[in-house]
Amino acid sequence: MPRLPRPAGIAMAVLALGVLATAPASGGEPALSDARLVAHFDFAAGRTPENIALERDGSADLTFAFARQVANVTRQGATRILATLPSVANPHTPLVRAAMVLGIARAHDGTLYVTYATGTAKTGVWRIARGGGAPRQIAKLPADGLPNGLALDEHRGVLYAADSVLGTVWRIPRSGGKAVAWAKGAALTPAPAPSEGVGANGIKVHGHAVWVSNTDRGTLLRIPVRPDDTAGAVEKRATGLAGIDDFAFTGRGHTVLAALISSNRVALVRPDGTHTEVLTRQAGLSNPTAVAVRDRTVYVAGGAYYTMRDPNLLIARLHRGFDR
């Protein structure tokens, strides 16, 4: 999620689809194939997809950051707006100065949770009932922060939100209530100027740990969840991932697909921290912001924040051997 003004009023120019390309991850065998764009969105209307949660039917729930909307998009590209976050008269959101809906997480019962950054008391976590409807704020977060990625741990009944400005992982009861600063430290903070000012960004719960990306520092981090639910020491699991935004695990192991927003790439990150480019702009990527994986189907959202052209949703196929 970069620093830029609200895009309303800017005309959208659609990228040519071009050649759908994949790159080999190792040994010449591609990790992904059959990449195709399934939906294009209106940049001028602020429909810039920021994050993804997957439904059981294979459709994707997307946050449209600057439109303040949550939408459901089928694998055939049909789009339905599920909810719109309330408008804010004078947003003072750090970095962007506009109200933005960012992270999204889905519970097994279909309830959706999103982060909303406004620079006002409306900043926090909001809940949307299954099937859509009026959002309800369930937790407040600091107005001077930028709550970005969101992850749900249903086993523990908590949500984790990554704050890109304050360098903090917040822990929030799923039922709502007071947010607690669960993890902090230099590894989660933005890099010094002249960086974009975006630290902790994407976040996932995986393997008894909370994993976080740091956009400015190009790192993928693992924070163990101790038996008493407190945060363990931050572990650096991969570096050199310039512009990393959101990410997703390909299976039960520690292999990750990471969206590299500024370079229009998706990288495969192996458990040892090495990484390889597996999708490029040739496949239709337009500043990829988020990745999701289910049953070897890979979803990539493109927010078009830098290209300002063709925000979209792409689907590709994950090859066997990379789904571990």
Rank of each mutant, 00 (worst) to 15 (best):
P147I: 01
R106G: 06
Q137C: 08
L112G: 11
A134E: 14
W126I: 08
G207A: 09
T22K: 00
R317N: 04
V300T: 08
V266W: 03
S59H: 12
P147W: 01
L220K: 07
A181I: 09
V14F: 11
P173E: 09
S26K: 10
G207E: 02
Q76F: 03
R270I: 03
T118S: 05
A292Y: 06
L4V: 04
Y113E: 01
T74H: 05
T168M: 04
D323M: 02
V101T: 15
A233C: 00
T307K: 03
G124M: 04
L268W: 10
D246K: 04
W182I: 07
V210I: 12
A105F: 03
R3T: 12
D246V: 09
V269L: 11
K140H: 14
D61L: 13
G157K: 10
R294N: 05
L314D: 03
V180T: 15
N287Q: 12
A186F: 01
A11Q: 10
V293N: 05
P271M: 10
K236P: 00
R68T: 12
V278I: 11
T219S: 15
Y306G: 04
G321S: 10
V114T: 15
P311Y: 07
A181P: 13
K204R: 15
E50W: 02
A21T: 14
G253S: 07
Y299M: 05
A258P: 04
P2Y: 08
A65Q: 13
E29Y: 03
E55G: 09
R56Q: 13
R265A: 15
A25C: 10
I261M: 11
G131R: 07
G185F: 07
A129H: 11
S286Y: 00
S33A: 12
S263Y: 01
G240T: 13
T289P: 00
R222C: 03
A181C: 09
A65E: 13
G185R: 12
A139H: 03
I244T: 12
N287S: 13
L220D: 05
V169P: 00
D109C: 10
L95R: 13
G28T: 10
G103R: 05
A162G: 07
G284W: 07
A8E: 15
N148E: 04
R106K: 15
R47K: 14
I203Q: 05
A139Y: 03
R265V: 05
A316Y: 02
H206D: 03
P227F: 08
I172G: 08
Y160L: 09
G132Y: 06
A13W: 06
A99K: 04
L112C: 09
L4S: 04
R281Q: 14
H92E: 11
P311I: 06
A21P: 00
P5H: 13
V198Q: 06
H108F: 01
L82R: 09
K236F: 00
G302I: 02
Q282H: 13
L146P: 02
V198Y: 08
G251A: 11
I104V: 15
I52Y: 05
L85M: 15
G77M: 10
R130P: 10
R75M: 14
F322W: 15
A13C: 01
H319L: 01
A290F: 01
I128Q: 06
A107V: 01
V205H: 04
V96E: 06
W211E: 06
V165E: 03
G177M: 12
